[in-house]
């Protein structure tokens, strides 16, 4: 009878977990991260443009030499140090979903750093150029690669003004079950879409940055006027990288 009992466990677990997440009534002592309005969607409900997920990066708070967001992304999404794969690829050929960029002011010589990743544009050049439509933007503003129909032409990488994408140069075997990735296709930051869909209400990078006490990365819903990210962006001047291209990025910066 044990099989049936376990089946029952599983079913109960998933039903309860789903209901619990949906109502926001998480078990005592555990709180949902309330950074973004993380109302978990029912599993069978499609994403909609009611939300637009985005990040606000405060480069003033980004601590020099800190790499916590990058490491957290690697662990969460199974690339770089988060995976045993890509041993044959050159450093130039290895995937990088997020990187810290050091900026040195040409006039004053002052230096600061900030994390760069896919900027989740509202008008993404990568989706424009993709011949098969594998590069696409989800209704909630997340730009993704549908690797099922990606032919590996790499035109999106040519078109991306942020150099946010990587091509996989060899066979992979150590993927995370939540983050499929493989040889001959292009990939980039997914804004931790599996976490968002699960109702975590944050991304690995924002989580790690908060845990380290910097709070330089804020995740949230740009469409919700009451979200912390919207309120902060209303109060403070923010910029888009390459704003001249008018792409209306989902990732915004302070202090560049």
């Amino acid at each position: 009878m044990s099989e049936q009992k376990i089946d029952q466990y599983r079913r109960d677990f998933f039903t309860k977990a789903t209901t619990a997440a949906a109502t926001g009534a998480i078990a005592p002592g555990v709180m949902l991260m309330s950074v973004g309005q993380a109302q978990a969607r029912p599993l069978d409900e499609p994403v909609s443009n009611k939300n637009r997920w985005g990040l606000l990066v405060d480069s003033n708070k980004c601590s020099d030499g800190c790499n916590a967001c990058v490491t957290a992304c690697e662990t969460e999404n199974g690339w770089g140090s988060g995976s045993t794969d890509e041993q044959k690829s050159d450093p130039d050929q290895k995937a990088q979903w997020i990187r810290t960029v050091t900026l040195k002011n040409k006039l004053t010589g002052s230096e600061h750093q900030l994390p760069m990743m896919c900027q989740h544009c509202e008008e993404p050049p990568c989706t424009d150029v993709c011949p098969t439509g594998a590069s696409f933007k989800r209704a909630d503003g997340i730009v993704l690669v549908d690797k099922h129909i990606c032919i590996g032409c790499r035109y999106c990488m040519m078109a991306c003004p942020y150099k946010a994408r990587s091509f996989i140069h060899e066979e992979l075997n150590d993927q995370s079950p939540d983050v499929p990735r493989g040889k001959g296709t292009v990939e980039s930051c997914t804004l931790c879409v599996h976490k968002i869909d699960r109702g975590d209400g944050t991304t690995a990078c924002a989580e790690a940055c908060k845990k380290d006490g910097h709070q330089a990365i804020m995740f949230g819903d740009l469409n919700d006027p009451n979200s912390e990210i919207s309120i902060t962006m209303k109060k403070h001047a923010t910029t888009q990288i390459r704003a001249d291209l008018n792409l209306n990025t989902g990732v915004r910066y302070r202090g560049i």
């Binding site: 466990y9 309860k16 977990a17 078990a27």
Partner: peptide, 17 residues
Amino acid sequence: IVTDKMKAFADVHDAPE
């Protein structure tokens, strides 16, 4: 982090994680 959440959930609801 979710595992913590799940663990807490599992404790309450007596379900495996």
